[in-house]
Structures are given as structure tokens and as C-alpha cells.
């Protein structure tokens, strides 16, 4: 029984970690720069989950003080992740902009082809 409890209590961590590892793996394993950025985004998204999930208190309500409620969800993680999302979006935008420029300069966005072209010159 305790094993089951651990699974039911912690499954969201498993999802977070799975996303985290999947994202990181894509970044490392893929040579296509857009795919790398996709991986990076997934990796970052897993962090949003990591923060937001524990903020939800079971039975808690939105944190608007009212005498009829005593248990509130924690709003802070959401606010933090709003910032993190902005940062992540900026990173993605900049990364994609770079990919566009790289494509203009090299004519490809595959890492190994780029290295090859640099070696030629």
C-alpha cells in the first residue's frame, strides 16, 4: 500500500521530471537548431510545473481573504512563473531570431552542416 501512496502522492513530480529529462535530451541529441529550441522550451516548461503544482493546496481556494475560507492556495508560484514564462519566451524569441540569421549566413540550420561549412572556409 505505501508504494501506491507514494505513486499517487508524487506522480506529478514524475511528470515534471519526465518533461525535464525529455527536454534536456532533445537539446543534447538533436542537431537541428529549431528542434534544440523546442527541447529547451520543454525543459523550461517543466520548471513551471515544478513551481506551480505545490502551490495548489487541496481544498484551498483563491487567495482572496474572506471569513468563510481558511485554506488558500499559494499565489506566489504563479506570479513567479509568470515572470519565468516571460523570460522563457524572450529566450525562445531570441533563439529563433538567431536561427533565422544563421540560416541566412550559412544556408542551413543543421549543426553538423554548419561546422562543415566553417571548416571549408
Amino acid at each position: 500500500m505505501p508504494t501506491l501512496a507514494i505513486v499517487t502522492d508524487h506522480y506529478h513530480y514524475a511528470i515534471t521530471i519526465f518533461l525535464m529529462m525529455a527536454g534536456l535530451y532533445i537539446v543534447v541529441a538533436r542537431g537541428n537548431m529549431v528542434k534544440k529550441l523546442v527541447g529547451l522550451s520543454i525543459f523550461q516548461t517543466s520548471v513551471y510545473l515544478l513551481y506551480v503544482e505545490p502551490g495548489k493546496i487541496i481544498g484551498g481556494t483563491a487567495p482572496i481573504i474572506d471569513p468563510s475560507f481558511t485554506v488558500y492556495s499559494n499565489p506566489l508560484p504563479h506570479v513567479l512563473m509568470l515572470t519565468a514564462i516571460v523570460v522563457g519566451m524572450a529566450t525562445l524569441a531570441l533563439g529563433l531570431a538567431l536561427v533565422v540569421r544563421i540560416n541566412e549566413a550559412y544556408g542551413t540550420i543543421e549543426e553538423d552542416e554548419i561546422f562543415e561549412r566553417d571548416r571549408e572556409t
Partner: peptide, 24 residues
């Protein structure tokens, strides 16, 4: 140099991984 773009991209990937590790 066009290699600056590539360097910046690599830096972006590594830097973002670093920052994400930090935030984790």
C-alpha cells in the same frame, strides 16, 4: 564574423540550461 551567430546560439543554449538548473 558569421561564426559569432553560432557562438551566440551555443551560448544561448548553454546559458539557458544553466539558468534553468539554477531556477530548479
Amino acid at each position: 564574423d558569421r561564426r559569432a551567430l553560432l557562438a551566440a546560439f551555443q551560448y544561448l543554449i548553454m546559458g539557458t540550461i544553466g539558468a534553468t538548473f539554477y531556477i530548479i
